[in-house]
Protein backbone atom coordinates (compact mmCIF):
# COMPACT_ATOMS: atom_id res chain seq x y z
CA UNK A 1 0.00 0.00 0.00
CA UNK A 2 2.85 2.35 0.87
CA UNK A 3 4.47 1.60 -2.48
CA UNK A 4 1.17 2.37 -4.23
CA UNK A 5 0.97 5.68 -2.38
CA UNK A 6 4.52 6.40 -3.42
CA UNK A 7 3.67 5.69 -7.04
CA UNK A 8 0.75 8.08 -6.85
CA UNK A 9 3.02 10.71 -5.30
CA UNK A 10 5.58 10.39 -8.04
CA UNK A 11 3.21 10.58 -10.99
CA UNK A 12 3.29 13.71 -13.09
CA UNK A 13 6.11 15.25 -11.12
CA UNK A 14 9.74 15.85 -11.86
CA UNK A 15 11.36 18.10 -14.41
CA UNK A 16 9.36 19.07 -17.47
CA UNK A 17 10.25 20.91 -20.67
CA UNK A 18 10.28 24.60 -19.93
CA UNK A 19 10.42 27.18 -22.64
CA UNK A 20 10.90 30.26 -20.54
CA UNK A 21 11.62 30.44 -16.79
CA UNK A 22 11.96 34.24 -16.74
CA UNK A 23 12.58 36.62 -19.60
CA UNK A 24 13.36 35.00 -22.94
CA UNK A 25 13.66 36.06 -26.52
CA UNK A 26 16.01 36.52 -29.39
CA UNK A 27 18.78 38.99 -29.98
CA UNK A 28 19.55 39.85 -33.57
CA UNK A 29 22.89 41.33 -34.50
CA UNK A 30 22.98 44.46 -36.63
CA UNK A 31 26.36 44.09 -38.24
CA UNK A 32 29.28 42.62 -36.37
CA UNK A 33 31.66 43.69 -33.68
CA UNK A 34 34.06 46.30 -35.10
CA UNK A 35 37.67 45.17 -35.32
CA UNK A 36 38.68 48.10 -33.16
CA UNK A 37 36.70 46.63 -30.24
CA UNK A 38 37.61 43.00 -30.73
CA UNK A 39 40.62 42.96 -28.41
CA UNK A 40 39.07 45.15 -25.76
CA UNK A 41 35.77 43.28 -25.45
CA UNK A 42 35.31 41.44 -22.17
CA UNK A 43 31.73 40.23 -22.76
CA UNK A 44 28.36 40.99 -24.25
CA UNK A 45 25.63 40.34 -21.79
CA UNK A 46 21.93 40.80 -21.21
CA UNK A 47 20.47 42.08 -17.96
CA UNK A 48 17.18 43.38 -16.62
CA UNK A 49 16.26 46.19 -14.25
CA UNK A 50 13.05 46.13 -12.25
CA UNK A 51 13.01 49.95 -12.24
CA UNK A 52 14.81 52.18 -14.62
CA UNK A 53 18.12 53.23 -12.97
CA UNK A 54 17.98 56.63 -11.34
CA UNK A 55 21.69 56.98 -10.61
CA UNK A 56 24.89 55.40 -12.00
CA UNK A 57 25.08 53.32 -8.82
CA UNK A 58 21.71 51.76 -9.67
CA UNK A 59 23.31 50.33 -12.82
CA UNK A 60 24.95 47.62 -10.73
CA UNK A 61 21.62 46.44 -9.27
CA UNK A 62 20.57 44.30 -12.19
CA UNK A 63 18.97 40.87 -12.42
CA UNK A 64 19.97 38.10 -12.50
CA UNK A 65 23.20 38.42 -10.47
CA UNK A 66 24.98 36.36 -13.12
CA UNK A 67 23.71 37.74 -16.43
CA UNK A 68 23.21 35.90 -19.70
CA UNK A 69 26.28 36.00 -21.90
CA UNK A 70 25.75 36.08 -25.64
CA UNK A 71 27.91 36.14 -28.77
CA UNK A 72 29.36 39.24 -30.37
CA UNK A 73 27.74 38.50 -33.73
CA UNK A 74 26.37 35.87 -36.02
CA UNK A 75 22.86 34.54 -36.54
CA UNK A 76 19.99 35.50 -34.20
CA UNK A 77 20.63 34.11 -30.75
CA UNK A 78 18.09 32.96 -28.18
CA UNK A 79 18.66 34.12 -24.62
CA UNK A 80 17.11 33.30 -21.25
CA UNK A 81 17.25 35.48 -18.15
CA UNK A 82 16.33 33.50 -15.05
CA UNK A 83 14.83 36.33 -13.01
CA UNK A 84 12.37 36.37 -10.10
CA UNK A 85 8.71 37.11 -10.76
CA UNK A 86 7.89 40.78 -11.11
CA UNK A 87 7.90 43.66 -13.53
CA UNK A 88 11.05 44.75 -15.34
CA UNK A 89 11.26 48.20 -16.88
CA UNK A 90 14.48 47.82 -18.79
CA UNK A 91 15.87 44.71 -20.51
CA UNK A 92 19.03 45.51 -22.40
CA UNK A 93 22.24 44.27 -23.95
CA UNK A 94 25.50 45.61 -22.53
CA UNK A 95 28.98 45.64 -23.99
CA UNK A 96 31.68 45.35 -21.31
CA UNK A 97 35.26 46.46 -21.78
CA UNK A 98 38.17 44.41 -20.50
CA UNK A 99 39.61 45.79 -17.29
CA UNK A 100 41.98 44.82 -14.53
CA UNK A 101 39.92 46.65 -11.94
CA UNK A 102 36.58 45.40 -10.65
CA UNK A 103 33.51 47.05 -12.11
CA UNK A 104 32.04 49.76 -9.89
CA UNK A 105 29.92 52.86 -10.05
CA UNK A 106 33.05 54.98 -10.48
CA UNK A 107 34.27 53.28 -13.64
CA UNK A 108 30.94 52.08 -15.10
CA UNK A 109 30.90 54.89 -17.66
CA UNK A 110 34.27 53.91 -19.05
CA UNK A 111 33.64 50.14 -19.02
CA UNK A 112 30.00 49.69 -20.10
CA UNK A 113 28.00 50.59 -23.20
CA UNK A 114 24.30 50.03 -23.89
CA UNK A 115 24.04 48.37 -27.31
CA UNK A 116 20.32 47.56 -27.56
CA UNK A 117 17.21 47.21 -25.44
CA UNK A 118 13.68 45.90 -25.56
CA UNK A 119 10.99 48.38 -26.57
CA UNK A 120 7.30 47.81 -26.28
CA UNK A 121 5.90 47.66 -29.79
CA UNK A 122 3.28 50.26 -28.96
CA UNK A 123 5.72 52.83 -27.68
CA UNK A 124 9.19 52.87 -29.14
CA UNK A 125 10.07 56.37 -28.15
CA UNK A 126 12.00 56.03 -24.91
CA UNK A 127 13.92 53.69 -22.69
CA UNK A 128 11.99 52.23 -19.81
CA UNK A 129 8.79 51.87 -21.78
CA UNK A 130 9.34 48.21 -22.65
CA UNK A 131 7.82 46.80 -19.51
CA UNK A 132 8.10 43.05 -19.06
CA UNK A 133 5.91 41.11 -16.64
CA UNK A 134 7.19 37.79 -15.33
CA UNK A 135 5.14 35.25 -13.45
CA UNK A 136 1.98 37.26 -13.05
CA UNK A 137 0.11 35.20 -15.60
CA UNK A 138 1.87 31.99 -14.69
CA UNK A 139 5.14 31.57 -16.48
CA UNK A 140 7.86 33.58 -18.10
CA UNK A 141 7.82 36.38 -20.61
CA UNK A 142 8.72 35.03 -24.03
CA UNK A 143 9.42 36.88 -27.26
CA UNK A 144 11.26 39.76 -25.61
CA UNK A 145 13.25 40.30 -28.77
CA UNK A 146 15.60 43.15 -29.58
CA UNK A 147 18.53 44.15 -31.74
CA UNK A 148 22.19 44.52 -30.79
CA UNK A 149 23.83 47.25 -32.82
CA UNK A 150 27.54 47.79 -32.17
CA UNK A 151 27.48 50.96 -34.29
CA UNK A 152 25.04 52.59 -31.87
CA UNK A 153 26.71 52.16 -28.53
CA UNK A 154 25.59 54.48 -25.75
CA UNK A 155 27.71 55.47 -22.79
CA UNK A 156 26.25 55.48 -19.31
CA UNK A 157 26.40 59.24 -19.29
CA UNK A 158 23.95 59.18 -22.17
CA UNK A 159 21.35 58.35 -19.55
CA UNK A 160 22.92 60.40 -16.75
CA UNK A 161 24.23 63.53 -18.44
CA UNK A 162 26.42 65.43 -18.76
CA UNK A 163 29.04 63.29 -20.40
CA UNK A 164 32.63 64.09 -19.48
CA UNK A 165 34.82 65.02 -22.42
Amino acid sequence: MAICAAVALACNEGLHPTTCPGICGTVTYQGSLPDSLRDSTAAVLIVAFSTFPQTPADLLRFQPPVPAFVDTGGPPRRYVLQVPNGTYEWVLAVWEKKSTTPLGAGNADSLLREIGFYRDGRDTTAQGTGRVHVGTGGGGAAAIDFVIDFTRMHRICHYFPPCPP
Binding site: P17, T18, T19, P21, C24, F69, R78, V80
Partner: peptide, 21 residues
Protein backbone atom coordinates in the same frame (compact mmCIF):
# COMPACT_ATOMS: atom_id res chain seq x y z
CA UNK B 1 22.71 22.60 -21.84
CA UNK B 2 21.03 25.87 -20.87
CA UNK B 3 20.10 28.92 -22.86
CA UNK B 4 21.77 31.27 -20.40
CA UNK B 5 25.48 30.61 -20.84
CA UNK B 6 28.25 31.15 -18.35
CA UNK B 7 31.14 33.43 -19.35
CA UNK B 8 33.39 31.66 -21.80
CA UNK B 9 30.89 28.91 -22.54
CA UNK B 10 30.01 28.13 -26.12
CA UNK B 11 26.30 28.24 -26.85
CA UNK B 12 24.41 24.98 -27.16
CA UNK B 13 21.20 24.31 -29.02
CA UNK B 14 18.38 24.25 -26.47
CA UNK B 15 15.76 23.73 -29.21
CA UNK B 16 13.78 26.62 -27.85
CA UNK B 17 13.87 25.30 -24.28
CA UNK B 18 15.21 26.94 -21.16
CA UNK B 19 17.32 23.83 -20.52
CA UNK B 20 18.02 20.45 -22.09
CA UNK B 21 18.77 17.93 -19.33
Amino acid sequence: CVAASLPGARPCDTRGQAFQP
